[in-house]
């Protein structure tokens, strides 16, 4: 279960997608997400799907990894799909007891499922091709203007990058604690969902305790390396837009614009 969590797993590489400025990747992702939630209809979706597949191919990330990122959301996709399938009013196709399926229901269910899948897959592609550090740099940079109204932008970005950094460490630790509890007879696999959730308490308590201890040690280590907030900080990799970004931006605007245009016209 735990090894399926892929959030924040960066695969180093040299593809054009890896070389792009994280800010443009982030902005393009936002444009893409807006597009998939605005458009409706077969052709606009086809464009969106093809665009994502092309991006995955360019990124040289194994498609299997992108598919794996979808596994944890399978239940959500099914759930939203089913809800939409049965609860959308419209032309009735099929009726059984209190369940009825409408043509509109099928269309909405398929659209919602596809939207969620595209949303998660495209976001994972971003985290696969962008190191969390440069991603938070991008966020800090894009949200920079908010510093003027005293918003803690740097602190927020730092917190996020540390959270991302510790995900693999904490997953590893969770597995270790689970093994230790299993060795002492804990049962995580049987019983209904409530008893299973209850069985996780002896895992979560030591995990939290150790997370707090780690946090304290990390804070000391950061202070020892002269960390004193965002003021006067420079970066090893500063952000700059290049030619790759220009090409990507043109393509993204063309694809998303095209999809939206098709949606309006059809």
């Amino acid at each position: 279960m735990l090894k399926d969590i892929t959030l924040g797993q960066y695969f180093p590489g040299t593809s054009p997608l890896h070389r792009m400025d994280p800010r443009s990747k982030l902005l393009i992702l936002i444009l893409y997400i807006v597009t998939i939630f605005v458009v409706k209809g077969l052709f606009p979706y086809l464009i969106c799907v093809l665009a994502l597949i092309t991006a995955v191919i360019i990124s040289t990330i194994p498609p299997k990894m992108v598919l794996r990122s979808l596994r944890p959301i399978l239940i959500i996709v099914l759930f939203t799909g089913l809800l939409n399938l049965f609860y959308t009013p419209g032309v009735e196709l099929f009726h059984l007891w209190i369940f009825k399926i409408t043509r509109e229901g099928i269309a909405t269910a398929a659209a919602m499922a596809l939207r969620i899948i595209l949303l998660v897959a495209s976001t994972s592609l971003l985290t696969y091709t962008t190191s969390p550090m440069s991603l938070t740099d991008a966020l800090e940079n894009l949200l920079g203007p908010l510093k003027k109204i005293k918003a803690p932008v740097h602190e927020f970005a730092m917190m996020m990058s540390i959270a991302l950094r510790f995900i693999p460490t904490l997953i590893e630790e969770t597995n270790k604690i689970m093994s230790a509890q299993k060795a002492r007879g804990a049962d995580f696999e049987s019983g209904n969902i409530f008893s299973r959730a209850k069985a996780l308490v002896p895992v979560l308590v030591p995990l939290f305790v150790s997370a707090f201890r780690r946090a304290e040690e990390l804070a000391t280590a950061m202070e020892c390396r002269l960390y004193h907030g965002g003021e006067g900080r420079t970066r090893l990799h500063s952000l700059h837009y290049g030619r790759v970004d220009l090409i990507a931006a043109i393509l993204a605007v063309a694809v998303c614009g095209g999809a939206i245009a098709l949606h309006i016209l059809l």
Binding site: T169, E217, R225, G232, R233, R235, L236
Partner: peptide
């Protein structure tokens, strides 16, 4: 200062970015 647990003193997700952390805090040029 170097501490006991290496996991709890590495800040960044890429080795070279972590090594750069102190220099970044010192505000050195790139």
């Amino acid at each position: 200062m170097v501490f006991q647990n290496p996991d709890n003193q590495i800040v960044a997700t890429v080795v070279e970015e972590d090594v750069a952390f102190a220099c970044e805090n010192m505000g050195l040029p790139q």
